[in-house]
Amino acid sequence: MKLDPAFIWTAFIELLSAIPTTLEIAGVSVLCGILIGTAVALVRIYRVPVLHPIASAYVTFIRGTPMLTHLLLILFGLPMLIDAVAESLGIPFRSVSIPMIGFVYISFSITEGAYMSEVVRSGMLAVNRGQIEAAYAVGMTTPQALRRIVFPQAFAAALPNLSNSAIGMLHATTLAFAASVVDINAKAQIVAATNWKFFEAYLAAALLFWGLTFLIERLTALLEKRINSYNRGGVA
């Protein structure tokens, strides 16, 4: 069997149709991940009594186990839980009516939340303590100080890690095949199944992911320049 360059192109064009699914999964999980991550980071920074150990355990457990196991646990465990609860409450709703991609969203968001919490935490710890004290000094409340003073600066500090995490999530969407969701990876398998040219199909998929990663990196660089424009070092 010889390498078929023409089929790489054909596969590439076919794979383009799977980009929205991949980006959707990545986008939803990163957004939910940031929300969960911020909540968890705040709980851990402010050492909220009962929630603090739970948050720590959540982060440690998720970061210590592969993402695939989270997906599998959600995929098999959540329907069991939902059905049991629905049955005991007498609701006719059953987990079968939830689309598979819903489980993917839930599982990936939980995973991403743990990783994001570390990103958010390191970003917030990078903000100088004097900043929040100055905010209190001019009469801001804690939520105000966080929203107006800490978060913007933490965002700038966390941006490189944030983009790394987003790229990691983009790459992790390839796991969605385990839940029979057709993303770029699954699409490559389908495209190649007709003529057995798996290598060409996966090469096209690899090039596509490479391009997407490059795009995210460029966008982050642009954003970083914009967001750090206030930071002029000794000039200010």
Partner: peptide, 19 residues
């Protein structure tokens, strides 16, 4: 380095397995 950090490990696995 750019290629191996810019593509998912799962795609790389298949790439090597078939390629």
């Amino acid at each position: 380095v750019s290629f191996f950090r810019g593509t998912p490990i799962l795609i790389q696995l298949f790439l090597f397995y078939y390629g």
